[in-house]
Design a protein around this nucleic acid. Structure first.
Lengths: 218, 218
DNA sequence: CCTGTTTCCAGTGTATGCAAGAATGTGTCC
DNA sequence: GGACACATTCTTGCATACACTGGAAACAGG
């Protein structure tokens, strides 16, 4: 993907760790030893520490002074709170986007949606997850507010692990795509409030699917 | 205030710099030399670098690889975008808070509002600014969603410089307090949508006052 | 066997040193 | 006089070294 060799060492470490956390490779609560991480990347502790600081401010890890860093502890309550924020953030974005997207942006969104039909039919979860990201990102950009879009991306990034879990429930991709269709309809009708409501419902359904997945796993 | 001697050196530097940026003591675009900052705090470059990394992830400064850090550049567009996000965030909080605050929380909010009358009458801007923070923070906590409250606090923190500017417009504190009264009414009536609308108006008025202040200064 | 104390060590926090890249100034050529 | 190439200097990025703290392990007393 991106050429990491040009980046600073601390950036490469930060991106790699963020990736491992959001994909779930590094489980919640795991301790992060600076020396150990440094060895893994062939780096000293200095760039590792800088990476950890940044991950801490983005909320992916928690740093306790003189006691090291751990992957952010996720209680069911915390997750529920994050899902609510996420739903409201998405609702805000789609409401603004409905009123502000250009005709070109609107048709690009429709094309994206149409292209996703094949992925659902083929049951390709990874492809659909990638599409999902692009669909929502197109809505963020439709707000024509860079600050809001950046915040939305950061929040979505942080919830990546849960989103993928949720899509694995049987039949969920089909439903998810149908919900996207409703979002698109509301946007095309120019009804921002309706689009926001549909988005809250979409996010709620995703959240419920995730809860069921977690229940069934335990 | 807080006993800084117990904190880590890097934390003290981070807090001090954040304070200087949010109060406007460090103007937008100013270059931040690591060695120079270190000398100022009697520290080496290591803790300074860690502080800078964190400030960068919170958006207060921008780091250009191998080219140092500068206080985040604020174009009028960026500021407008941030104000919109801020208004929507506050609107979200007050809507949720209206439906979720306990009677005790509600009466605490009313008492806060009543106490602010004297500050406005005395023309004490600093005291009113502090009250303002507490009033809005009580609303954040009224959401009973820690994640949303934390995001709201972070956003408000970042806009601190603008808020204080805005309150210096003659007559603004009186109007601000009157608007708070309307917010309180909507909360007491349990009308979350109305509270959200009143909050957007409140934030819009604050933003307009700030624009006028900036215009008159230049 | 349990509890409170002491010791020790793994791991973090900070300072310093060195190397590489960016910014700046100087000289030469047109 | 202006533009480009080169050298110099300044700053950042990373590595290493040392100091300090928190917590586990060992130990003594009940």
């Amino acid at each position: 993907m991106t050429d990491t060799s040009a980046l600073l060492l601390s950036e490469r470490i930060r991106i790699a760790l963020a990736d491992e956390i959001t994909t779930g490779a590094l489980a919640s609560g795991v301790a992060l030893d600076e020396q150990q991480i440094g060895d893994r990347f062939g780096a000293s502790r200095t760039p590792v520490r800088e990476a950890l600081r940044q991950l801490a401010s983005s909320g992916l890890i928690e740093m306790r002074p003189r006691r090291g860093a751990i992957v952010a502890a996720m209680t069911p309550d915390t997750i529920a709170d994050m899902f609510e924020m996420s739903a409201e953030m998405e609702a805000l974005c789609i409401r603004l986007a409905t009123y502000r997207m250009t005709p070109i942006e609107r048709s690009a969104l429709r094309r994206l949606h149409e292209a996703s039909e094949a992925m659902v039919a083929a049951g390709d979860i990874d492809a659909y997850d990638t599409f999902n990201l692009r669909f929502h990102q197109a809505i963020y950009e439709g707000t024509h507010n860079r600050f809001i879009a950046a915040q939305a991306v950061a929040l979505r990034e942080r919830m990546a692990a849960f989103r993928r879990t949720q899509l694995r429930e049987s039949g969920r991709p089909v439903k998810s795509r149908a919900e996207h269709g409703q979002l698109l309809d509301a946007i095309m009708r120019g009804d921002g409030e309706e689009a926001a409501k549909a988005m809250r419902a979409h996010m709620f359904n995703a959240s419920s699917a995730m809860e069921r997945m977690i229940q069934s796993q335990s």
